[in-house]
Amino acid sequence: MKAATIFLLYLACIYGASIPPKPCPLEKNCGKVDESSAVCGLDEEVGCIRKYPSKCHMDIAACHEGKNFTDYSEVYCSMEPYFCEKSYERWTILFGHEDE
């Protein structure tokens, strides 16, 4: 009996680690958004602000990145100099183009 229990625990450890995580929601479930629905969250690991089209979009991004954005507000969206830089550095801030 103990051997069977140990074997089952062994299998659970081996195969339990390969159970895929719960999938993140899809962006299409967020509905229509506009500039007034934008929300910005503080990425505490990097120390900058990330802008999202809506709280729904922010939650999906957090799910994909394995983060939990608890410090967010539409007020942060007015703090453009503190936005996280993209691969093209500060192009959007310098020339006023927004991400699409």
Rank of each mutant, 00 (worst) to 15 (best):
A3M: 12
A4T: 14
T5K: 14
I6K: 15
F7G: 09
L8W: 14
L8V: 13
L9S: 09
L9C: 14
L9I: 13
L9Y: 11
Y10S: 07
L11M: 13
A12G: 07
A12P: 04
I14V: 15
I14E: 08
Y15R: 07
Y15K: 12
A17N: 09
A17Y: 14
A17V: 15
A17I: 06
A17D: 13
A17M: 15
S18F: 11
I19N: 12
K22F: 01
P25T: 10
P25I: 08
L26V: 10
L26S: 15
E27M: 07
E27D: 12
C30L: 13
C30I: 10
G31C: 05
G31M: 06
D34T: 13
D34C: 12
D34A: 07
E35A: 13
S36H: 10
S37T: 15
G41A: 15
G41T: 07
G41H: 14
L42S: 01
D43N: 09
D43W: 00
E44H: 00
E44V: 00
E44R: 00
V46P: 01
C48I: 03
I49K: 11
I49S: 04
S54D: 05
S54K: 04
S54P: 04
K55H: 08
K55R: 14
C56T: 08
C56M: 14
C56S: 12
H57F: 06
M58Y: 02
D59R: 00
I60N: 01
I60A: 05
A61T: 13
A62M: 00
A62K: 00
A62G: 01
C63G: 11
E65D: 15
E65P: 07
G66F: 07
K67N: 03
N68H: 05
F69I: 00
F69C: 01
T70A: 09
T70H: 07
D71S: 01
D71F: 00
Y72K: 00
Y72E: 01
Y72M: 00
S73H: 03
E74F: 04
E74N: 08
V75Y: 01
C77E: 03
M79H: 12
E80I: 01
P81D: 05
F83R: 01
C84L: 05
E85D: 13
S87H: 14
R90L: 14
R90Q: 11
W91N: 14
T92E: 04
I93G: 03
L94K: 04
L94I: 03
F95D: 10
G96F: 11
G96Y: 08
G96E: 07
H97Q: 10
D99I: 08
D99W: 09
E100L: 09
E100I: 08
